[in-house]
Amino acid sequence: MSCKKIHNNLIFYLEGELSSEEMQAVRSHLDDCDDCRRFAEMMKQQLQLIESEKQTEVSPYFFTKLSVRLDEKYEQFRLPAQGWLQLTTFSLLLIVGIVVGIYLGNLPYNTVQTQSVDNNMLLMNDFETEPIETFLLELQ
């Protein structure tokens, strides 16, 4: 068996997945070939690493951490509803504010303003009855 054929089948040899004749052929090749033997040894060690990585211990606080995150998730689910409620309330308040503003602006405020403007106009017209020249002469 050639080295190339060995390299193609080595992993299956190490996993015991070849026929008994093929297993025997690979074994006898490895006895004679240093290079293939070294590669087989390297690959065997690498595959054994998988076995050593299988054992995993989970943190004892795994469920506690998960519970905290679960509560946070529920908070997140609730937040959009709260957000909509806030938005609706704010919009309603804004609309009510605008309507009340328009109502107040249209009725009593205009009347008061017109009257005060008329009074000012009357005061302005007083200058006609008492010209500024007369007023200045009186001061002197």
């Binding site: 990585e53 995993t56 989970v58 795994f62 951490k65 998960l66 995150r69 679960l70 998730k73």
Partner: peptide, 27 residues
Amino acid sequence: QKMVVNTCKSIVYNHADAEDIAQDVFL
């Protein structure tokens, strides 16, 4: 939990990351 963390770790190769992903899985 062990099964899920193991599966995640066999793909991401980091225990802390695997536990974080496992929590996402349960959520």
